[in-house]
Amino acid sequence: MPWTNLFVERKEPPFDQDEGKDLRKISFAEAIREALDQALERDKRVFVMGQGVDAPGGLWGTTLDLHKKHGAKRVFDVPLSENALTGVAIGAALVGMRPVFVHNRPDFILLSMDQIVNHAAKWSYMFGGKVKVPMVIRSVICRGWGSAAQHSQALHSLFMHIPGLRLVMPSTAYDAKGLLISSIVDENPVIFLEHRWLFKHTGYVPTGLYSIPFGKGAVRKEGNDVTIIGISHMAVEAIRAAAELQKEGIDAEVIDLRTLKPLDTGIILESLKKTGRLIIADVGWKTGGVGAEISAIAAECGFADLKAPILRIGCLDTPTPSSYVLEEEFYPGVDDIVQAARQLLKK
């Protein structure tokens, strides 16, 4: 489909660049594929399932030809029975396998909320830790090209609300590979969300296997005037906004949380202590969203450090419209972050 090539950003974010002999530049999508490839290679318990994982395009390249390399028994297409197939993944995990279930849109995950929320998230606690459910649910979220309301949601706030789930949202190729490996290695159900606009971003990624600990955010740019927390693709937008703001003499600190559950509250509060101002830029809706949760944490634990009101940036509280004019209004971006920072710094 044309939009897969057209609306993807090509500007490279200026971070995680590190020259080294085992590093090379690959795309976010290639990093995902490499993590799956190496996990399948290393661990016979791992298998990858989902609609189209063995299709010619390989889900934006993230599963490309893995079925040819690792066999159709380990990388396989599934019927469109999202709820049952999620249960199938849970059952396989319970008896010692490591399933990775891929959804090419998060909207389809809603059909499997019973198995995710009532079963996967609860099976460890509800049975006193006697069994575990090590599984990964991967999904490609957000923007396409006029994809409208049912092919473009983020939905991470729904998962953040549920005890028993890990929630991972990488924004760089390096993190995508390392965090996906951590997700497969983890002993619990993990929701792993990949923003579609990140797929063609490139970054330096080690050739070997590596994992990134959950619950450790990254400071993408240091600054003293305002803290900007970016979720998923908004971390990239936040870095761009920070560069704009620098020209105006506003020194912004940019934080990429990388995982929302567990959440690195330490990195948020520490930054707030320094800047006294907080902006949270999310790829989802504002109401009842991740920004609300982070705001509450900042108010509860960092109130004394606040010099200004906390500002949240998110999608309009409507279903995603399809016309590009309305889409531009719906999705937040660099300009919204810049505006918010100016407002806080009264410039």
Binding site: A84, A92, A93, L94, V95, Q115
Partner: peptide, 11 residues
């Protein structure tokens, strides 16, 4: 628990 049983069989 029906699909979970199916998954255990797959495992």
């Amino acid at each position: 628990s029906i699909p979970i049983a199916v998954g255990a069989a797959l495992g």
